[in-house]
Simulated scan of single mutants.
Amino acid sequence: MTYVEDYGADRTRSLGPDPTLHDPVSITESELGAWTEVRQRSRLNESAIGDYTYLMEDVQLDFTTIGKFGNVAAAARLGPTNHPIDRPTAHHFTYRAAMYDLGKDDESIFEWRADQPVEVGHDVWIGHGAIVLPGVSIGDGAVVGAGAVVADDVAPYSIVAGVPAEPIRRRFPEDIAARIAATEWWDWDHETLRERLDDFRDLETFLDRHAPETADPATLD
């Protein structure tokens, strides 16, 4: 991994195949793919991010998996840990008892949290300050608006926003989204991405050169 202190004003500084981490960050029992970037004060706990995914400042991931080419804006939180509100108190002294010299920790609570993972597909954009609650799945190509609170699953290539988050519109018509998804471009190697960079800059060119003429929208589910 490559550690750097700061980008400063230079937003074009190059990354590399090894993850780039901007101190300080906290990473616990997590996996980072190639060409990934984690900016200052972000925290990953039992999570994984795929190749080319980046996390801006102050992002928190708990029990979260993000696919390739993920875009996570600053101050987003995915999989915030729940408290056991069915107990007489929601305070964590009941399961972090050792911290307060009250006895042994209750590991069942930590197992319960781990059983509610967040699953995020490829090419997903999570907006600034968004919250994705435990147990939610977000499909490939989806967009989550800034400040949204996502309590329900998000369909592929859809845009959601609000509190609670609700569908706003589709990113592309279903037939176009299906054609894009059929290319599985996120699995292309680095050299192929370089060769086809210009094609990514125009939708029609990309579809003409790389997508099937038709694709079943049902495959998006």
Rank of each mutant, 00 (worst) to 15 (best):
S108W: 10
S108G: 06
S108K: 12
E111Y: 10
R113N: 13
D115T: 10
P117V: 05
V118Q: 05
V118N: 05
E119P: 04
V120W: 00
G121D: 10
H122N: 14
D123S: 01
V124L: 00
W125F: 14
I126W: 00
G127R: 03
G127N: 00
H128L: 08
H128P: 00
G129H: 04
A130Q: 01
A130Y: 01
A130M: 06
I131G: 04
V132P: 01
V132E: 01
L133I: 10
L133R: 13
L133G: 06
P134S: 03
P134K: 07
P134D: 00
G135Y: 02
G135T: 05
G135M: 03
V136E: 04
I138S: 04
D140Q: 11
G141F: 01
G141Y: 02
V143Q: 02
V144P: 06
V144A: 07
G145W: 09
G145T: 07
G145C: 08
G147C: 06
G147R: 02
G147V: 10
V149M: 11
V150G: 03
V150Q: 03
V150E: 00
V150K: 07
A151M: 13
D152E: 15
D152N: 14
V154C: 11
V154R: 01
A155F: 10
A155K: 12
A155R: 11
A155D: 14
Y157W: 12
S158I: 04
S158Y: 03
S158P: 09
I159A: 11
I159E: 02
V160A: 06
V160Y: 04
A161R: 09
A161S: 14
G162Q: 06
G162I: 10
P164F: 12
A165T: 08
A165C: 09
E166H: 14
P167D: 13
P167L: 15
P167G: 09
